[in-house]
């Protein structure tokens, strides 16, 4: 009797543990991230100029807000976009910018230690955990609306 009880206990603990690791929790995305590659191409090799290559930082907060700091070709300044996001199921993230534009796609996220992969609309971007430098935060140009960008300006 004792042995069966022990076995049941062990099995139920095991199943509980297995249950915990088997998809009851959402993929953690909160934190600050830096783009490492897009579709296998390293970001630093894309649109290279005297300031460097493509550089994208994303910050996801716990309370459903996000910011991006983008430096895309030919400029020293980073542009800050912001907005909100929601989680759908365990591993889908959907967002909308503060100007009302949705993200170009909903993204399926996979987390492996300090790397976050976001796949959506046939693009797969890999981000590595990195804090956003103060100098980038402080000098970023705020993009509040499409008006700021001009029509289709900085079209990504």
């Amino acid at each position: 009797m004792g042995k069966i009880l022990k076995l049941v206990l062990i099995i139920s603990v095991f199943m509980t543990l297995a249950g915990c690791t088997k998809g009851q929790e959402q993929v953690g995305i909160a934190g600050e991230w830096k783009l490492e590659s897009i579709n296998g191409v390293p970001a630093e090799n894309m649109s290279v100029d005297e300031y460097g290559g493509l550089d994208i930082y994303i910050s996801f907060s716990e309370d459903g807000k996000f910011e991006t700091f983008q430096r895309v070709s030919g400029g020293e300044h980073y542009y800050r976009f912001s907005g909100t996001y929601v989680r759908i199921g365990q591993d889908v993230v959907s967002g909308i910018y503060s100007d009302g534009n949705s993200w170009a796609a909903d993204y399926t996220v996979v987390r492996e230690s300090d790397r976050l992969t976001m796949a959506g609309g046939d693009d797969t971007c890999v981000y590595v955990s990195a804090s956003i430098p103060d100098i980038i935060r402080d000098s970023a140009i705020e993009v509040k609306s499409v008006q700021d960008c001009g029509s289709g300006f900085r079209f990504l």
């Binding site: 983008q70 895309v72 070709s73 534009n101 993204y107 046939d122 993009v143 499409v146 990504l156």
Partner: peptide, 16 residues
């Protein structure tokens, strides 16, 4: 003109 080729495009210039 600088061109980036990828699979998605956003209207407002945002990366995501």
């Amino acid at each position: 003109i600088s061109v980036i080729a990828r699979n998605v495009r956003n209207n407002n210039g945002g990366w995501l």
